[in-house]
Amino acid sequence: MTVLLIGSATSLADPLPAQLQGTWRIARLIPTTNMGCWDSARAQFLVGTTLTYSPKTLHWQGGDVPLTGIVTRMINENDLKAEFDGDPKPADFAQLQIKQPIVTEVNLQHEDADITGGSTEVPGDSVLLVAPNRILGSACGVYFEAQRVPTPHRPTHK
């Protein structure tokens, strides 16, 4: 057990990364070769929806999902492929347009939820932080890209 914990840069009690806090709009689905419980046609409803992350909740489709924990870890392409063990052609960094050799993965822990009607996953409960204003998530094996929604600037009064 100790070797496993030393070998992976994972923590069970991490704070929500500041880079993830805020509102994100799902901009597009990313075609990959991995298998999932959805195909891109079934997942199309995700495009245009928003995800809002705060230290204690994930908000999606009008509902709050209370978080019971946050796990972050640094992953490389081999780690990503290992998550789809048994899939004949799992997604890779090239398909996901990830240029860095290592990215941060954030897994939001929550009670099981039947939000999507095919899985206990909540879209956006596991994301890769790939750029300051770009995250990648997955739901039922379908990957999506979300972009940060700018916070309205409030003018200061003199």
Rank of each mutant, 00 (worst) to 15 (best):
residue 2 T to I: 08
residue 6 I to T: 14
residue 6 I to L: 13
residue 10 T to D: 10
residue 11 S to P: 05
residue 11 S to Q: 13
residue 13 A to Q: 13
residue 14 D to V: 05
residue 16 L to G: 05
residue 20 L to Y: 00
residue 21 Q to K: 13
residue 21 Q to Y: 10
residue 22 G to K: 03
residue 25 R to Q: 04
residue 29 L to V: 13
residue 30 I to N: 00
residue 31 P to W: 09
residue 34 N to G: 07
residue 43 A to E: 08
residue 47 V to E: 02
residue 48 G to S: 04
residue 49 T to C: 04
residue 50 T to N: 12
residue 53 Y to G: 04
residue 53 Y to F: 13
residue 54 S to Q: 15
residue 54 S to V: 11
residue 55 P to H: 03
residue 56 K to D: 00
residue 58 L to V: 05
residue 58 L to E: 02
residue 60 W to E: 09
residue 64 D to E: 15
residue 65 V to F: 02
residue 69 G to T: 06
residue 69 G to P: 03
residue 73 R to Y: 01
residue 74 M to Q: 15
residue 75 I to C: 01
residue 78 N to H: 11
residue 78 N to R: 14
residue 81 K to T: 03
residue 82 A to D: 14
residue 82 A to L: 11
residue 87 D to M: 00
residue 90 P to C: 05
residue 90 P to N: 04
residue 93 F to V: 05
residue 93 F to C: 09
residue 95 Q to G: 06
residue 96 L to I: 06
residue 99 K to Q: 13
residue 100 Q to L: 12
residue 100 Q to R: 15
residue 100 Q to G: 10
residue 101 P to N: 14
residue 104 T to E: 09
residue 105 E to D: 12
residue 105 E to A: 15
residue 108 L to M: 15
residue 108 L to P: 08
residue 108 L to N: 04
residue 112 D to H: 06
residue 115 I to D: 11
residue 116 T to P: 08
residue 131 A to T: 04
residue 143 Y to T: 00
residue 146 A to Y: 01
residue 149 V to R: 05
residue 150 P to M: 09
residue 155 P to Q: 15
residue 156 T to S: 14
residue 157 H to A: 13
residue 157 H to W: 08
